[in-house]
């Protein structure tokens, strides 16, 4: 017989689980409805017949923004993880008061809401001629996510024993070589966590592309948002756009979720996992 508390726990999980499941369920059944059905049926009722034409139509409309977003967020994740690890390594290697102060500066900039630099950021990208361009959005992301990558990588690096680096130094290896051949191979899971975390966060980001571009084509979240205004009561189109736009981060989350979770825990608690 299961313990009483397991029963209570199962009831809690089932009740909350229903609420948690409902939106995803609505997204899926909603985007499979035909035009005729979407006019009359509530969002939670299953479709009478499965109609994939809306999904196909919306996917075709989303192809540009999906490509643009991939072009921005994949390099952003890799570049910020790489240059963030350089900084993390330098701070770890050098040590001392100045290094601590720099790390503190980086950590604070990670947690300050990026929304506050709206006005200067837009002006700056306009001056550089990067406004309404993909590199401009990438620049906006890098400002915020590079310090975050440095912080994440720093926490991962501190788990490496100093003896390992000392031994490589005795062998006469240079800093760049130590980082590449000794430190980074030991940090495989840490780097993966950093990349996955930034990948999901930038894919889902709405504010930075909203302020740095015109129109709705340069980032997937903008495109999804555009359906709110133009589709009126045709929720099948909105849901199809929301569903298609969520599939890449959801797939990454489902299959590489442990890396994302590790990134979250590291940012929150400094746990090295």
């Amino acid at each position: 017989m299961p313990r009483l508390s397991t029963v209570t726990a199962s009831i809690i999980i089932a009740l909350f689980g229903l609420v948690w499941f409902m939106p995803v369920y609505a997204l899926i059944v909603g985007s499979l409805k035909s035009l005729k059905e979407v006019m009359g049926t509530p969002v939670l009722s299953p479709p009478e017949s499965i109609d994939t034409s809306t999904l196909a139509k919306v996917f075709w409309e989303l192809r540009g923004p999906l490509l643009n977003t991939s072009i921005i967020v994949i390099p952003t994740a890799f570049v910020s993880a790489l240059i963030g690890s350089l900084a993390a390594y330098a701070i770890y290697r050098r040590g001392g008061k100045i290094s601590d102060a720099i790390m503190l500066l980086i950590a604070i900039s990670t947690y300050i809401p990026y929304h506050v630099i709206l006005v200067p950021l837009v002006q700056f990208t306009k001056t550089l001629g990067l406004y309404d361009t993909l590199p401009g959005v990438m620049f906006g992301f890098l400002i915020y996510y590079t310090p975050m990558a440095a912080l994440l990588m720093y926490i991962f690096i501190t788990a490496i024993p100093r003896d390992v680096i000392e031994a490589a130094l005795v062998d006469g290896a240079g800093e760049w070589r130590i980082l590449r051949r000794v430190v980074l191979p030991l940090l495989g899971p840490g780097i993966t966590s950093t990349i996955i975390f930034i990948l999901i966060m930038t894919w889902n980001n709405f504010f930075i592309p909203l302020i740095l571009t015109r129109g709705y084509e340069k980032h997937i979240t903008l495109k999804i948002f555009s359906y709110v205004g133009q589709s009126g009561t045709l929720y099948n189109q909105m849901f199809a756009a929301a569903l298609i736009g969520s599939i890449p981060p959801l797939i990454v989350f489902i299959f590489l979720g442990r890396y994302f979770i590790k990134g979250l825990l590291v940012l929150g608690t400094g746990a090295k996992g």
């Binding site: 509530p42 969002v43 929301a242 981060p249 979720g257």
Partner: peptide, 26 residues
């Protein structure tokens, strides 16, 4: 992981779904 999944969605997506879940008729 299941209870964490909303965190991996864009808040725009969250907004769109809940906008409809809160609809008085649908």
């Amino acid at each position: 992981t299941f209870f964490l999944y909303p965190f991996s969605l864009s808040l725009v997506v969250v907004g769109i779904v809940w906008r409809w879940l809160y609809d008085p008729f649908k």
